[in-house]
Computed example of a mutant assay.
Amino acid sequence: MIVGLTGGIGSGKTTIANMFHELGVSIYIADVEAKKLMNASKEIKEELMAAFGAKTYVDGELNRSYLSNIVFNQPEKLQQINAIVHPRVGQHFKDWYAARSKETYIIKEAAILFENGSYQQCDKIITVVAPLETRFQRLLKRDQTTREAIQSRMDNQWTDAKKIALSDYVIHNEDLEKAKEQVAKIHQEISLLRSKI
């Protein structure tokens, strides 16, 4: 069983994913795997350099700040990157999941689970939400960035309301202890559901 885990930037998806991991669930973090593939895959490197120039990589490593500056105000460029990277991440996930298909369930954590359509592969979906100001504060602290840059990234994602409408579970992630309780309850429900299949 594949359980999708998503949420807006700064909602704390990774924190929630780690809570599930502590309960013994295997977690696939799409952004982390995408970054690994962008540095390891010869095909991705060649296609990104063809699209965005030689500066895309420095000493064989992805030049993230260079790419971020390109896509900052050009959503069509972000779509171009996604079109190159996401099919490879999708295949990588299929292989990863095939090796774990006997597990009760696994979690695929992806920021743009809905936006890129991969939610359709999931049996259940969890959306993580947090108050807007909490999200801003987390990101300002984590990324040493500006409110404007954060808002621009938020504008490229679906709203919480739109995600919630298509989700089976919603985790409110403001208080860690309360979030842990919600994770434990969902874990129990999904495990029980799986045992009946």
Results as ranks from 00 to 15, higher is better:
K77C: 14
N82Q: 12
V89T: 05
G90E: 14
Q80K: 00
K94S: 15
I81N: 01
N69K: 05
K94I: 15
P75H: 09
N69M: 09
K77S: 15
N73A: 11
A83F: 03
P75N: 10
H86E: 11
K94P: 14
K94F: 15
Q79L: 10
Q74S: 03
L78Y: 04
L78P: 09
N82P: 08
Y66L: 02
D95W: 10
R88K: 10
V85Y: 05
D95L: 09
A98P: 07
P87H: 05
W96Q: 06
F72Q: 12
V89S: 04
H92Q: 06
G90I: 09
I70M: 06
R88V: 14
P75V: 05
H86A: 07
A83W: 05
H86V: 10
E76N: 08
Q79P: 09
H92W: 07
L67I: 08
Y66P: 01
N73S: 13
F72M: 09
N69Q: 13
Q80F: 08
E76G: 07
I70C: 04
N82R: 00
R88Y: 13
V85N: 07
A98C: 07
L78Q: 09
G90F: 08
Q74T: 06
V89H: 03
S65M: 00
W96S: 05
F72K: 04
L78I: 06
D95N: 14
F93D: 15
V89Q: 03
Q79G: 13
R88I: 13
Q74Y: 05
Q91R: 03
V85G: 03
E76L: 03
A98R: 03
I81W: 02
I84R: 03
V85A: 07
D95Q: 14
W96I: 11
I70N: 03
P75W: 06
F93C: 15
G90W: 09
F93G: 12
K77A: 15
Y97S: 00
K94R: 14
V71P: 05
H92F: 08
F72A: 12
I70V: 10
I84G: 06
L67Q: 02
Y66E: 01
I84F: 01
I81Y: 01
E76F: 06
D95R: 09
H92M: 02
Q74G: 02
K77M: 14
G90N: 12
A83H: 12
K94Q: 15
A83M: 13
N73M: 08
